[in-house]
Amino acid sequence: MNQPTESVWALESQALSGGYGTESIVQDISFGLHPGEWLSILGANGSGKSTLLRLLSRILLPQQGTVLLDGKAIHTQSAQAVARSLALLPQQQTIPPGLTVRQLVSLGRAPYQPWWSWELDVADRQQVTRSLESAGLMDYSDRLVERLSGGERQRAFLALALAQTPQVLLLDEPTTYLDLRYQLELLELLKRFNQDQNLTIITVLHDVNLATRFSDRLALLKHGKLHHLGAPIDVVTPENLAEIFGIDAAILQTPVGLQICPLAPFTSSKPQVQTL
């Protein structure tokens, strides 16, 4: 069973560099994720978080390095083969008008269909129903996606990704447009999949507190380079926060884990305020 050649990583990034045109936005990123691990990528605006996620999900071709999914390079496989084990929830969604939730989630079975296919078979339709159920959307299945609230919409797109039955799920700022309750609800839902089904998760998050609370490991990016990688307790330090975000912060121990309390931006990087 456990052959020595078999990859221990669900997803591995090897010396990955990439960007747009000739410009490199992320450089030399290496890490590996165990099956069932949850990694959050943190960094200031423009540090290359989304670019890294696009490289990991095969949308962007790397300039250097490779991404291995279960030991196999993703950029040499077909998009369809990769889509069977890796799913992405982009930051902003395009919503075609007139699409129902069930129609949307049904598209998650596309990686298992030939391109000319017309109708899903019974097994695929059952998987769609299971995904709708697990995202708590059964009552919404005939509603139009465009009419849903922000939280419900995000759950619908999560159900779409889950219908792919992926081993690895990448999420680009999934909580950005959600209020506090929906943020927690979505992350709790992910945690359940993470624990029950051993789903490997990578999230790009802005909220350091939520990232710290839900992730197994954190990756801190600065100017496109991986600065720190490790368990939240080791990585979230006043020094690192100062270096990555340029803020002075206090770190508190609370019942739900570490809480970061930003005190003030460093005066050196503070914008000049013009006064009359």
Binding site: R54, S57, R58, I59, S78, A79, Q80, A81, V82, A83, R84, L86, A87, L88, P90, Q92, Q93, T94, P96, L99, L107, G108, A110, P111, Q113, W115, W116, S117, W118, A161, Q164
Partner: peptide
């Protein structure tokens, strides 16, 4: 079906297996 997937935007279409 490819057209339906393309309606979701380029990024999502690719992650759903469209070349």
């Amino acid at each position: 079906q490819v057209m339906n997937l393309l309606q979701l935007g380029d990024d999502l279409a690719v992650s759903l297996g469209v070349s």
